[in-house]
Design a protein around this nucleic acid. Structure first.
Length: 151
DNA sequence: GTTCTGACA
DNA sequence: TGTCAGAA
Protein backbone atom coordinates (compact mmCIF):
# COMPACT_ATOMS: atom_id res chain seq x y z
CA UNK A 1 0.00 0.00 0.00
CA UNK A 2 1.98 2.93 -1.20
CA UNK A 3 0.24 5.92 0.32
CA UNK A 4 1.65 8.33 -2.16
CA UNK A 5 0.35 11.61 -0.87
CA UNK A 6 2.95 13.37 -2.86
CA UNK A 7 2.04 15.58 -5.73
CA UNK A 8 1.08 13.08 -8.35
CA UNK A 9 -1.55 13.58 -10.97
CA UNK A 10 -4.46 15.64 -9.78
CA UNK A 11 -2.90 16.95 -6.64
CA UNK A 12 -3.51 20.60 -5.94
CA UNK A 13 -1.93 22.95 -3.45
CA UNK A 14 -4.29 25.23 -1.58
CA UNK A 15 -2.92 28.63 -0.65
CA UNK A 16 -2.73 29.31 3.04
CA UNK A 17 -4.52 26.13 3.90
CA UNK A 18 -2.13 24.48 6.25
CA UNK A 19 -2.65 22.24 9.22
CA UNK A 20 -0.59 22.07 12.36
CA UNK A 21 2.65 21.11 10.68
CA UNK A 22 4.80 23.31 8.53
CA UNK A 23 4.55 21.26 5.36
CA UNK A 24 2.21 22.80 2.78
CA UNK A 25 -1.18 21.11 2.77
CA UNK A 26 -1.78 19.09 -0.33
CA UNK A 27 -5.37 18.31 -1.23
CA UNK A 28 -5.71 15.56 -3.69
CA UNK A 29 -8.50 15.88 -6.19
CA UNK A 30 -7.93 12.65 -8.06
CA UNK A 31 -7.16 9.15 -6.94
CA UNK A 32 -5.76 5.98 -8.44
CA UNK A 33 -7.84 2.91 -9.05
CA UNK A 34 -6.06 1.14 -6.21
CA UNK A 35 -6.94 3.85 -3.71
CA UNK A 36 -10.54 3.96 -4.89
CA UNK A 37 -10.76 0.20 -4.67
CA UNK A 38 -9.62 0.22 -1.07
CA UNK A 39 -11.84 3.13 -0.15
CA UNK A 40 -15.03 1.66 -1.54
CA UNK A 41 -14.28 -2.00 -1.17
CA UNK A 42 -14.48 -2.68 -4.88
CA UNK A 43 -11.99 -4.83 -6.70
CA UNK A 44 -9.91 -3.34 -9.48
CA UNK A 45 -11.71 -5.65 -11.85
CA UNK A 46 -15.09 -4.38 -10.71
CA UNK A 47 -14.07 -0.76 -11.17
CA UNK A 48 -12.89 -1.45 -14.71
CA UNK A 49 -16.04 -3.41 -15.33
CA UNK A 50 -18.26 -0.51 -14.21
CA UNK A 51 -16.35 1.69 -16.58
CA UNK A 52 -16.90 -0.75 -19.42
CA UNK A 53 -20.59 -0.67 -18.61
CA UNK A 54 -20.61 3.11 -18.67
CA UNK A 55 -21.35 3.69 -15.01
CA UNK A 56 -18.22 5.76 -14.53
CA UNK A 57 -15.75 7.52 -16.77
CA UNK A 58 -12.59 8.21 -14.84
CA UNK A 59 -10.20 10.50 -16.66
CA UNK A 60 -6.79 9.27 -17.70
CA UNK A 61 -3.21 10.22 -17.24
CA UNK A 62 -1.63 8.33 -20.03
CA UNK A 63 -3.59 5.15 -19.66
CA UNK A 64 -3.78 5.27 -15.89
CA UNK A 65 -7.24 5.93 -14.51
CA UNK A 66 -7.74 8.95 -12.27
CA UNK A 67 -10.93 9.16 -10.23
CA UNK A 68 -12.32 12.61 -9.48
CA UNK A 69 -14.70 13.77 -6.77
CA UNK A 70 -17.55 13.35 -9.25
CA UNK A 71 -16.48 9.78 -9.94
CA UNK A 72 -16.42 9.10 -6.23
CA UNK A 73 -19.93 10.42 -5.79
CA UNK A 74 -21.09 8.09 -8.51
CA UNK A 75 -19.20 5.22 -6.90
CA UNK A 76 -20.91 6.00 -3.62
CA UNK A 77 -24.28 5.61 -5.27
CA UNK A 78 -23.14 2.46 -7.00
CA UNK A 79 -22.04 1.02 -3.66
CA UNK A 80 -25.37 1.80 -2.03
CA UNK A 81 -27.36 0.29 -4.87
CA UNK A 82 -25.18 -2.78 -5.04
CA UNK A 83 -25.69 -3.25 -1.33
CA UNK A 84 -29.32 -4.10 -1.98
CA UNK A 85 -28.52 -6.17 -5.02
CA UNK A 86 -29.70 -3.75 -7.63
CA UNK A 87 -28.72 -4.70 -11.18
CA UNK A 88 -26.07 -2.59 -12.89
CA UNK A 89 -28.44 -1.60 -15.65
CA UNK A 90 -30.72 0.03 -13.11
CA UNK A 91 -27.81 1.70 -11.39
CA UNK A 92 -26.72 3.10 -14.71
CA UNK A 93 -30.21 4.50 -15.26
CA UNK A 94 -30.11 6.15 -11.87
CA UNK A 95 -26.71 7.70 -12.47
CA UNK A 96 -27.62 9.12 -15.82
CA UNK A 97 -25.12 10.21 -18.40
CA UNK A 98 -23.81 13.42 -16.86
CA UNK A 99 -20.73 13.13 -14.77
CA UNK A 100 -21.99 15.64 -12.21
CA UNK A 101 -24.07 13.69 -9.78
CA UNK A 102 -24.05 16.05 -6.79
CA UNK A 103 -27.34 17.28 -5.39
CA UNK A 104 -29.42 16.16 -8.31
CA UNK A 105 -33.09 15.91 -7.30
CA UNK A 106 -33.97 14.13 -10.52
CA UNK A 107 -31.33 11.55 -9.76
CA UNK A 108 -32.64 11.05 -6.25
CA UNK A 109 -36.11 10.67 -7.69
CA UNK A 110 -34.89 7.94 -10.04
CA UNK A 111 -33.05 6.24 -7.23
CA UNK A 112 -36.11 6.27 -5.00
CA UNK A 113 -38.18 4.76 -7.76
CA UNK A 114 -35.68 2.00 -8.44
CA UNK A 115 -35.23 1.36 -4.75
CA UNK A 116 -38.97 0.89 -4.25
CA UNK A 117 -39.01 -1.53 -7.13
CA UNK A 118 -36.06 -3.35 -5.62
CA UNK A 119 -37.88 -3.56 -2.31
CA UNK A 120 -40.80 -5.25 -4.04
CA UNK A 121 -38.48 -7.76 -5.63
CA UNK A 122 -36.76 -8.47 -2.33
CA UNK A 123 -40.09 -8.92 -0.60
CA UNK A 124 -41.18 -11.41 -3.22
CA UNK A 125 -37.89 -13.23 -2.94
CA UNK A 126 -38.28 -13.44 0.78
CA UNK A 127 -41.74 -14.96 0.41
CA UNK A 128 -40.48 -17.42 -2.16
CA UNK A 129 -37.62 -18.50 0.05
CA UNK A 130 -40.06 -18.94 2.90
CA UNK A 131 -42.16 -21.23 0.73
CA UNK A 132 -39.13 -23.24 -0.31
CA UNK A 133 -38.09 -23.58 3.30
CA UNK A 134 -41.48 -24.90 4.30
CA UNK A 135 -41.43 -27.36 1.42
CA UNK A 136 -38.00 -28.60 2.38
CA UNK A 137 -39.07 -29.01 6.00
CA UNK A 138 -42.09 -31.03 4.92
CA UNK A 139 -40.01 -33.27 2.68
CA UNK A 140 -37.44 -33.79 5.40
CA UNK A 141 -40.09 -34.77 7.93
CA UNK A 142 -41.57 -37.15 5.41
CA UNK A 143 -38.26 -38.81 4.66
CA UNK A 144 -37.35 -39.13 8.29
CA UNK A 145 -40.69 -40.76 9.05
CA UNK A 146 -40.19 -43.15 6.18
CA UNK A 147 -36.80 -44.06 7.58
CA UNK A 148 -38.25 -44.55 11.02
CA UNK A 149 -36.33 -41.69 12.54
CA UNK A 150 -37.58 -39.25 15.09
CA UNK A 151 -38.80 -36.00 13.73
C1' DG B 1 4.95 -2.47 -6.39
C1' DT B 2 0.89 -0.78 -9.29
C1' DT B 3 -1.90 -0.67 -13.24
C1' DC B 4 -3.36 -1.85 -18.05
C1' DT B 5 -5.64 -4.81 -21.54
C1' DG B 6 -7.31 -9.11 -23.04
C1' DA B 7 -8.81 -13.80 -22.39
C1' DC B 8 -10.93 -17.52 -20.03
C1' DA B 9 -13.77 -19.52 -16.18
C1' DT C 1 -16.71 -10.59 -11.84
C1' DG C 2 -12.39 -13.49 -10.30
C1' DT C 3 -8.00 -14.74 -11.98
C1' DC C 4 -4.03 -15.18 -14.85
C1' DA C 5 -0.71 -13.53 -18.34
C1' DG C 6 2.42 -10.29 -20.47
C1' DA C 7 3.77 -5.52 -20.80
C1' DA C 8 4.58 -0.71 -19.21
Amino acid sequence: MTEDYGNRGGAVRLQGATDMGSAPTTVRTHFTIGEIAREFGFTLRALRFYEEKGLIRPRRTGNRRLYSAADRQRLEIIAKCKKVGMPLDDIRDILGVGNDVANDPARSERMLDKMLTRLDALTEEKARIHDYTQEALLLIADLKAKLGRAA
